[in-house]
Design a protein around this nucleic acid. Sequence first.
DNA 1: ACTTGACCTGGAACGCGTTTCAGAAATTAA
DNA 2: TTAATTTCTGAAACGCGTTCCAGGTCAAGT
Lengths: 317, 317
Amino acid sequence: MNIHDIAKLSGYSAATVSRVINNRKYVSDDAKLAVQKIIKEYDYVPNDVARDLSKGKTHNIGVVMPYTKHPYYTGIINGVMDAAFPAGYRIVLLPSMYDADVEMNYLNRLRRKAYDAIIFTSHGVTLDDLLEYQKYGSIVCCHDPGNYDISAAYTERIDSYLKAFTWAKAQNVKKVAILLSRNFELSATSQLTRKAFIKIFHHEPLESLLRTDVITYSDGYRSAQSFYKNNVTPDLIFANGDDVATGARQFYLDHHLPIPTLIGQENQLSGQLLNLPTIDHNFHEIGRLAFELAIGDETKQVSVASRFILRNQNDHN
Amino acid sequence: MNIHDIAKLSGYSAATVSRVINNRKYVSDDAKLAVQKIIKEYDYVPNDVARDLSKGKTHNIGVVMPYTKHPYYTGIINGVMDAAFPAGYRIVLLPSMYDADVEMNYLNRLRRKAYDAIIFTSHGVTLDDLLEYQKYGSIVCCHDPGNYDISAAYTERIDSYLKAFTWAKAQNVKKVAILLSRNFELSATSQLTRKAFIKIFHHEPLESLLRTDVITYSDGYRSAQSFYKNNVTPDLIFANGDDVATGARQFYLDHHLPIPTLIGQENQLSGQLLNLPTIDHNFHEIGRLAFELAIGDETKQVSVASRFILRNQNDHN
DNA sequence: ACTTGACCTGGAACGCGTTTCAGAAATTAA
DNA sequence: TTAATTTCTGAAACGCGTTCCAGGTCAAGT
């Protein structure tokens, strides 16, 4: 049962049926009634895929996310979803594990018109790749693209990083551990953390106090464990998430060791519970903005400042 | 640039080009080479939407989720995603807020071939509706569908509920508060909680100790607050999530009141941190199974038992 | 030598809705 | 009463890839 069948049955043409369905002007009441009657009688619904094909638009937005459990990505996705839903767009989840081939495949799906736009919460492919594929559809990334002409919605982190390290320095900490998702070469965010650190502490982060590929509570725990095994005892752990910081804390607790000062990120529940200082990067808002850019047609960059939230980890309960 | 253009340029027909692209048999080496040359030269990629249209398949699975932040839904979605990704399927997020109209719209999109299948992590529409729409595509729900012939992947909860309440009773608690997402009429899961409660305590849950629409940490906090305002002091709070239990706990803590015994659910980080007894419903596995059912063609039900995890909330740190 | 079957290839139909364009009919304006 | 609009309507083309079927070639089997 397709639009042509309905046309035949109602005695009008497919064009007229289409007009009725999309209730457009230039249809007589007679025609409208007759067509609606047949549509109802045969319980006809138009085929979305065919519609997408002829309109050249799918109302699908792909969201590439390296990891599925990381609060960064899920936070952004919630923001995207909350904006996309009322606008009649749906979001398609595209896990990538930072695999450039997989991400390339998604970019090609953009070319193939499977999505109207793609939002990269983070990416393994290069900015040059993104630039190159921009001609096939709207592409938005979620970090500062520098001087690349690529749409981006991102968090302006430097101020809160500086604030956090400044506060840390005032606590008179010496040995600062830094836990990151990705290393300095791969991640602009990590690079930013490094820069802020250097600005405040006037030296490079110590290799021995650096850990990458840290994402979860367990990773935090393991990081602390590895510090312990290597006989390094940080007096501050700057973690990339409250859950991570909490995991590290747990290691020291379990082994009856003094707990270093902790700074988390993402303003997660664990941080609230333990009253850890944290940095809120406003991911929900970033998601919202990324969506707006995705459906808009200008290439532009928007940013939101993140916020250092000072709490005292010693007076939690 | 479409397949017909490539056909013309290569001197072969669209049919042959299609065969080359999908590398099927019955294409001469000459033809293959000539076509591939043109494809490369013009950097042609086929249009996915057109392909979907003619194949009648999108490789998209819709996942309906009432709330976007609830661990139940996100857990299932992660399971679906982890299974869908290697199988070449993508998942489309469909938020519903339990709105039957919205969900109906999604079901109609299934009819319209926008998705190959829909997984309802939970639903506001009736099982009769699902039954009715099954003829338009695979539909999977995530709770026990009773004697409805609908595919389902769900958690068998009754045993662990009984275990939890049995343990609770052994703690000699009298006033049991129950925090739920949805009320008994609306939710089969809530109903199950009620049944288990009655079986162990031999009476209906007390109205005054019942709260619904409780989902987050803050909701848990507010629930405890409302008990306090109404002068009811539960000695056990059976929450629908560890975060919720944690929220309730926080209220008592903040007001220097004795903390009731807590039982959480979902085995969340907060519960681990505070060493709360919890019930793990294996949502990840449910998601995986739901996906298998979604792409399979038989209608069947599979279940996984949930697990009561006993921990002692008093010896946390 | 003759049948059989595997191998190639392309025209045309199919999946299905939208849109353009041209022509006809009915109003309104002048 | 013309001229100029506006309203309807449908045929056909379009978006684009897939597949069926018919027709032809060529090597293997008897």
